[in-house]
């Protein structure tokens, strides 16, 4: 039966059920700590409304494209290059196939 719940990984094993039990323990602990906190939050007051620099925001939705704005901005040179690589031109795709074919032939025949 122990074989069914874990898989050997060579250096150790991975047993998801034990992980789930541990996860539940951590969750219960987290709930306990959380429940000891102060209750100043009041529903239905201005505390629920989103503010941006002290201004009320009408439509407080953060679009998917605004998530990780910093990461995307930092990676922009790489992403632009990769997007340029996927140019949509079928000639270039066929060319890449020839490149791979040439590499494989060289590797195998060498």
């Amino acid at each position: 039966m122990t074989e069914a719940i874990k898989i050997e990984t060579g250096q150790g094993y991975w047993a998801p059920l034990i992980f789930v039990v541990a996860l539940l323990g951590v969750l219960i602990l987290a709930v306990l700590i959380w429940s000891r906190g102060r209750r100043e939050y009041k529903r239905g007051t201005e505390q629920e409304l989103p503010f941006l620099s002290g201004e009320k925001v009408e439509n407080p939705r953060v679009g998917a494209l605004h998530l990780y704005w910093g990461l995307a901005e930092a990676l922009r040179p790489l992403l632009e290059r990769l997007r340029g690589w996927h140019s949509g031109n079928i000639n270039e795709y066929a060319g890449w196939f020839l490149v791979i074919l040439a590499v494989v032939v060289l590797l195998v025949l060498a």
Binding site: R83, H86, S87, G88, N89, I90
Partner: peptide, 10 residues
Amino acid sequence: DARKIRDLRG
């Protein structure tokens, strides 16, 4: 023209 048929890119 293959150069102009590139809606699917990026």
